[in-house]
Design a protein around this nucleic acid. Structure first.
Lengths: 233, 233
DNA sequence: TGGGATTTGTTCGTATGTATT
DNA sequence: GAATACATACGAACAAATCCC
């Protein structure tokens, strides 16, 4: 399925934020017609991973700093809900899954690299899944995907690691059943992730960031074009 | 735009939950080809308003009671975030907008009917919009839409009203700036809405509800139900 | 159970709009 | 600034699956 492949490529940062996504090229690559590619791109746009500009084709989304902060704000809230729902409700079987995942995190940490980052992210997806709330699960997945994009733009090279210890504390708190502590731990943990990603530093004002804001909707684009006429090329 | 029209029709309950949505008929109605209809249906599926079953066409979504609970859980959390973000941060201009909206709510309440319900819902959308968090705004819109569907299935005939007084308290609390009180008020308010919708009564086990669960992607639905058996009293 | 009617899935061609030289 | 090259938007037609009798 072309949707899955594209999504994977974007999350794994094989396709850098801002990359153009021509329907023809993608369709040829996957051996399908543009129709299916369009469908996939539309879905990805609904998730915020792709921006679709009328008559100008698709590109991997390039979230602004403001969007990044919005995503983090919502994500923190959603994941605090997740641990609240799970707190004191986990069965042995669920805890075993979490422990097993944590073990692979610790294992991968020594080797470092992409796998370590992937596993750290999937810990959060596992938590969301365990809530049994399908909608919450979908949202957390979506938010985590967008965070990958954001880290690709604004994050330090190897920012998303070092979280294993925090994950362990979370599991312990979940088992214990102290909701306030669970929420606080998750809040601090995600704040730490955001911190490592440098999102609270003064806005870098990347040129591409600025331009992306003007390239989106028709009205703004028109304004941008108008402005450009008066500028020296 | 066919997407807007369909969405509106579903939310206004002109199209009942479970209604079939044949591509041909819709396209003819709007004078466009099936391509555009399919696009719109895909977007509506992403929002949870439409279910798309392979080779079997689209239908207005028919959320199960479990899905309904999931939606309410997430909605409460998101709207509590909204008031937390707004609390003590509103400018006079914003408060004026809220007051004006409240006035039309009070006005419409005497006449009752659909307009009253619509305005009560739009109050929440206005709150989300005022946060300036585009993602939160999108999510609240999505959640509110799905709530319309849910009320259409499980709600009392005229359930969503009587909220004007609660909205007033919320505005006052927002102006005052007490976050805890704002969150509590919103929590109680949404719990009351859910209560009026009778969602906490014993499951009615509508035949269509049960069948809808099995008509989807069988494996996942079954798994989700199994997982949740051990929680939610 | 089988076959025709109906509906969906997909492709591809043309029109239209955008970027470039 | 106009013409050209290119990519997308939309629709008609064909292929495949499902539904209904």
């Amino acid at each position: 399925m072309v949707y899955r492949a594209l999504r994977h490529a974007i999350i794994e940062q094989a396709l850098a934020p801002g990359s153009k996504l021509p329907e023809d090229a993608i369709g040829e690559q996957f051996g399908v017609s543009r129709t299916l590619v369009r469908e996939a791109l539309a879905r990805l746009e609904a998730e915020g991973l792709v921006t679709l500009r009328r008559n100008r084709g698709a590109a991997v989304a390039y979230p602004s700093l403001e969007e990044a902060r919005d995503v983090f704000t919502v994500r923190r809230t959603m994941e605090m809900l997740a641990v609240e729902l799970l707190c004191g409700q986990l069965r042995e079987h669920d805890i075993a899954r979490l422990e097993a995942h944590l073990a692979s995190e610790e294992d991968a940490r020594h080797r470092g690299g992409a796998e370590s980052i992937r596993l750290a992210g999937e810990f959060h997806l596992l938590l969301a899944e365990l809530t049994g709330n399908a909608l919450l699960n979908r949202y957390v997945n979506e938010l985590a995907s967008r965070c990958s994009l954001i880290l690709a733009i604004y994050g330090r090279p190897h920012s998303a690691e070092c979280a294993v210890q925090e994950h362990r504390q979370l599991i312990d708190a979940l088992r214990e059943g102290d909701i306030a502590r669970c929420r606080a731990l998750m809040d601090e943990h995600l704040a730490a992730v955001m911190d490592r990603a440098l999102l609270n530093r003064p806005p870098p004002r990347d040129v591409r960031d600025v331009l992306a804001r003007y390239a989106e909707t028709g009205g703004l684009a028109a304004a941008a074009r108008k402005t450009r006429k008066h500028r020296n090329p």
